[in-house]
Design a protein around this nucleic acid. Sequence first.
DNA 1: ACTTTGACTTCGG
DNA 2: TCCGAAGCCAAAG
Length: 114
Amino acid sequence: MHGKSTKLPMSIAIAAAIRRIPRGKVSTYGAVAEAAGYPRCARHVAKVLKQVPGLPWQRVLGAGGRISLSGEYGMEQRFLLQAEGVRFRGKRVDLAAFEYCFPRMRRSVCTGKR
DNA sequence: ACTTTGACTTCGG
DNA sequence: TCCGAAGCCAAAG
């Protein structure tokens, strides 16, 4: 094949990362972006969450464990997270306790396997 | 090719 | 702790 890596669309990688967040854990927009291989693309994570149906969207939080959605959707997110065991301290989730740590990708080859 | 869009993040006051 | 401004960046229009 040609030398350049086939970059799968960012949205696919991001959606895959979101799907890896286990029940009862959370992540952040920035961390998801980085885990997907696109650091500093936190805003794209938001776009994917809006566009792609069927993702565990409630597990993605803003920096510091804050809910970014406003209004009813924000309430819904909090409710769903609490229902799966995530506890809040004020308006935040304690990330030290509930943040999912994505396994590090190997630098050389990432064939999609683990 | 330019503009808009996104559920963002960081920093300074 | 709570804003507002600035920075961020690929996809979509």
